[in-house]
Every structure is written in C-alpha cells, then in structure tokens.
Design a binder for these strands. Structure first.
Lengths: 344, 344
DNA sequence: GGCGCCTCCTACATCGTTGTAGGAGCGAGC
DNA sequence: GCTCGCTCCTACAACGATGTAGGAGGCGCC
C-alpha cells in the first residue's frame, strides 16, 4: 500500500504538501496540485484512516447500540442511521446489546477505547435507576427512546403517547368503541408499552369512554406476531365484543389481523386494525396495515446530527458547554386499508 | 484520557514495561506487574486502539457488506456475524450496499482505507461478468452466496438447490403433487431464485412428475409477503389446482399462507406451505411455518473464521499461499405445523 | 575469576498522518 | 533600497502504541 511519502517522492514535493493538497489547503500552486494528484492517481494512493485518526484524535466513526438487528424495527432504524451517518460523513459501528445489561454496559465502555467518537444508545435493559451510569459518560452520547431519561444527556425520542392517542382516535372517529390494545407488559412501567397505553387511555377518556380491561392483550413473551394473534384470540374467545384493535407494534397488529381474518372476520369492516412503527412489512400486508409512523427517519437524522454537533464541540477551542437537547420526532398516522369507517 | 506514559510515570517504570504487562509478556516481575496494574486501575487507563492499529498494521475490524438490514434475513445474518466476530475477537463494520452497484463497489474500496482488515461481501448486484473486480482485490475477502463465483476467492454459501429439493420432497412425501413455487424472477439466472427452482425441478423429475408452469408464481417486484399473497391468488384465481406451496423465501410463503387462510383454505390440510430461510417470524406465524434453515449460523461462523484465517496468514512471515475454500453450509428442513400429511 | 545465560527492564525508532514554525521568493509601498 | 506582506513550500515534532536492541544484575558452571 502506498503512503504519502511515496506520493511525495514521485511528485517531488514534501509529505506535508501532499497532505495539503488532499485536504484542500488553499496555498498550493495549481501546477503542484496537479503533479501531486497525478502521483496519487498513479500509485492508487488512499489515505490511511488509522494514522489520520491517531494524529487528529477523532476517528470519524460513531457507535450505535441497539438490542438486535433481527428485530425489523431496529434493522430499519439501523439502515436509516447508517444513511444519516453517510450524509454527515461519519461511519457507524453497530454494537448489538442483545437485550442484556452486560451488552449495554459494554457498548458504553467502547467509548473509552478510542475507536468511536460518540455513541447513539438505545437502552432496553438499563432503567431509570441506572441513570448515573450514563450521566458519568464523558464522551459524546445521545440516547434514543424514553426508557432512560436524564436532563444532562441529549435525547431523541418518538411521540409514544401522542402516536397511540392519534391511532386510537382514528379508530374512534371511524365509529369503533370497543378497541382492544395488544402488547401490554406486566413488568414495564416506563417504556414504550406504558406510554402507548397512556395515549390509548387519554383518547378514550377524552370521549368519555371507559377503559375496559377485558380489551387488554398481554404479550410478556415479546412483541411478536404470534403473541398478537394469541392475544386477540383470547379476547374473542372470552366473548368480549371488539371492533377495533391497536397493536403496540406492527408485528402484534399483523398477527392480530391474521387471526381475525382466519376466523372469518373482515378487516376493516368488522374489526379495524392499527399498528405502530410503520415497518416495511406493514405496507405489504393484506390488507395493508394502517400504522403510526413514529418518524424513524427524523429520529435517525436528528440523532446523528446532535451527536456530530457534540463531537464537533469537543474539537473547538471555546469549549462553551452545549445544552442538552430533547428532540421528539413528529409522528404521523399512515392510513392504509386495515382501517375504514364502520359499516352501519 | 490517560495514556501509557501516564501509567508508566505513576508506576515508576518505562512505557514499554506497561505495554509488556498489558500484553502478558512473560518477563515481568510479579511486583512490577502489580504496580503497573494498580496504576492502570487508578487512572482508569484503556489502551488506545487507534494507536495500536497504526503500529501493528491491523485494526481488528472486518467489514460486512450486505444490501440492507431492514430485510429480516440480512438483519438476522448480521446479528449472527456480529456474534461470530465477537467470538473471534474482531469487530464488524456493517456497510449497507442498498442493492446498488456503487454501494457494492464502495464496500470493496473501503478495504483500501485501512480501517478494516478484511471484508465479508454478499453481492446482490455485481454479477458473474464482474468477477474480475473481486479477483483484483488484494486484501482478505470472503464472498457470501452464489451470486458471483470465482475459484480464486473464498466462498461460503448455502445449499440452495438441495434445500429447495428437500422442501419439495417433503411436500411430495406428504402426498402433494400440485406444488406452486412462488418468487421466480424473470431476469435472474444465477442467483438464489434460479438455484431454488432447479431444486424444485429436480425433486419433481425424480418422481417422474411434470413441471407445470401454471404453478409458477412470479415476484419481480421483490420477495415480500404481499407478492407471495398476490402470486398464490393469481394461481388460484386461474383455477389451477394446488395442494402445496413452496415459497422461495419465508416472506413469500407467509404471504401465501395468509391468502390461503383468508380464502378459507386450511393450512396444512388443504394446502401445505413451506418457506426458505428460517427467519424468526416464521416461528411465530399461525400455523408456524415449515421452512428450510439454510444454516445461517454456520455460514456466519465459517465466513468469519475463513476471513480471520486469511487475515492471520498475511501476518505470518511464511506467506505460504492459502488455497481458496468453498464452504457450503449444512441445510435442514425445519418441520412445523404449516405442513402435514394430506388428509385422504 | 571469567564466561555465558537468563531475567527484567529501558531507550529509541517506527507506524502514516497532520499541526507548527519558519524560510524563500516575489511584488508593492515608502 | 529596504521593509512588509503574501504565497508556497519544507522540516520537524507529535499522536500513542509496539518492535528491536541492548544493558544491568544475578546465577551457575568450568
């Protein structure tokens, strides 16, 4: 592999001049610039990022800690963040935490090894009582989601409450009054499940409707399709009347929709179904699933931007403290064919 | 951030001694070792991987070029490869190629920037006529899949033909004779689609059965659920008899299964359904989907191992040439409830 | 006692790049 | 003619680690 010294020798200039050419330093004569570029071309020279990183103190890489990529939401989020990283000129190193505490702590420690300039962290296991751990982090950090909150750290989240509320209101507007909510977790009181339930409650109460716990579908084993199907089956088997379904994520909603259709119920005529997350699969379901787009692309773009801003701040002399930001992405209900007015 | 020099000063030894302690160099007195470790502890010192990489010439990172993580198969493959990387002590930098030629070429060029020691490349767009491009790569490279083949490069693939054949034979063994095959691509003649069709053909012909093209379901718009549903709907609407379905991937099979059930056909009694890939979703479908496990974990483990072997070979003096390997992972039909004997 | 070997440590160079300091050449202004 | 300032370039040090060479001290052996 050619080095700058090789290029310099071939072009008959100093190493630094080569560096200057490649970094668009203005005071280089045009003829020199061309000579250097020709040498670069001729040797197929590529700058060595490791050496550059050592010298400059930054690697141009950021970390992304998420539970697992096999989960479509995280896989798609990762794609969006990688794309946002490309736009901002940084590479993204993905560190799956596997829904484990050790995995999440390991991701935070990665910051000390000097390989990444900052970290986007989507905690799934660390909970509010661990807030000191993230507050102790001295490198640029942006938290994704509302699992773990600190006023000292940047956050980018989705509008869980508003999203669930809007989805529920869509069903109410279409004349549905018996709306099942699928995916509740017995143990969780801070995460997406609890917040989305809050939005559901708010929508019902705003219309003066009672929350009927017989319409609660639990999914402590995970937000999979199978659990969506099972939960709706239990509700129907119990003889509970139901004309609408809110899945706390798309997989649950899709599983429920399948179960309904297999039982001969028509979607949306008999039961309307709404999901949450707007994963790609939902667009291709039959019928296509109405869902809440939580603003995944905005989340990705904003998170990367905030992180890059914080990284840049470390390299400016001023060192004026950057105020922590809380950004809540815009959500939007994507209406497709799994919802529609209740036939009279 | 503390450096080795800080540790050395605190421990009262030379920088190199600190390095020796951390790298388990044997000739260090026990008392010295302890003194150094105490200093390390006290300063919270972590070795700087950038500096180590520059000096040693290897970064301990490998690249993984796949089309996109949002596609569940690739998301899960990425998880498996990240896990395999962890076992081998390397980190994995994921580079989504976005099903574009530029993306795939960019991933290959990444090898010249010195950030990764080698690349796992799953081509989706580069085709056999581009074989010279990958043969020209001078750094460690392992190709995944059969899209692009060269005898000069390591390959790790799945048994596409055998897998499709075994899946088809399972259906035949259960008394199915009218087996639809979903997901064929008009343009493709070298990739997974063509190979799996070959396995399907072989299974039928071995039993003396004709291949009926009216049972062909096309999916040029992509291997999504929606296309699986559409394809099976077209076959049924055309009045073609059908008691079995082979989806060329799980999404197609799941979409087809859904369509069948919505039409009141029972799975597996009326129509048995088999998929390919064994993605997580299939386990949670209703009924759970019988599918071909192409050996994803074995592929991940083997690919990482081959790549690491090739990387290590570059750093051994001998430089004896490593013979290119072609590894075909073991496949296995995972029988679940979407298949079963045909009721008489 | 002299020699060689083993243990334990240090000094220095090195990886490939970029920041700093400064020098040479040239035109403009007094 | 001298200074000043601008342009263009070079030499050297530095980032933080590891490889090499070698030195000091202790021990055993002839």
């Amino acid at each position: 592999m050619a080095t700058m010294a090789d290029v310099a020798r071939l072009a008959g200039v100093s190493v630094k001049t080569v560096s200057n050419v490649l970094n668009d330093y203005p005071y280089v004569r045009e003829t020199t610039r061309e000579r250097v570029m020709r040498a670069v071309e001729q040797l197929g020279y590529r700058v060595n990022v490791t050496a550059r990183s050592l010298r400059s103190g930054r690697t141009g890489m950021i970390g992304l800690a998420v539970p697992e990529l096999g989960q479509p939401y995280f896989g798609e989020l990762a794609d969006d963040i990688l794309a946002a990283g490309r736009r901002h000129g940084v590479q993204v190193l993905i560190e799956p935490t596997g829904y484990t505490r050790e995995g999440e702590l390991a991701a935070l420690e990665e910051l000390d090894r000097g390989l990444i300039d900052g970290l986007l962290f989507s905690p799934a296991v660390l909970a509010p009582e661990d807030v000191e751990i993230v507050e102790a982090v001295r490198q640029p950090l942006v938290l994704l989601g509302e699992q773990l909150f600190s006023s000292k750290v940047d956050h980018v989240t989705m509008r869980n409450v508003e999203g669930a509320r809007a989805a529920t209101e869509l069903l109410l507007d279409q004349g549905r009054t018996r709306i099942a909510i699928l995916g509740l977790l017995h143990r969780e009181h801070v995460g997406a499940s609890a917040l989305r339930l809050e939005g559901y409650r708010a929508a019902l109460e705003a219309r003066g409707l009672e929350v009927d716990e017989r319409l609660f579908g639990w999914a402590d084993e995970g937000w999979h399709r199978g659990n969506g199907a099972r939960a709706v089956a239990q509700i129907l088997d119990a003889g509970v009347e139901c004309d609408g379904v809110l899945g706390l994520n798309d997989a649950l909603a899709l599983g429920a929709m399948h179960e309904l259709q297999v039982r001969g119920l028509r979607v949306p005529q008999d039961v309307a179904v709404v999901g949450f997350d707007d994963v790609e699969d939902s667009r291709f379901a039959t019928p296509p699933l109405t869902t809440v787009d939580p603003g995944r692309r905005e989340i990705a773009e904003t998170a990367v931007e905030l992180l890059c801003r914080r990284i840049d701040a470390r390299f400016r002399a001023g060192a004026e403290p950057v105020e922590p930001v809380l950004h809540r992405a815009a959500m939007r209900v994507v209406e497709r064919e799994s919802t529609g007015p209740r036939p009279s």
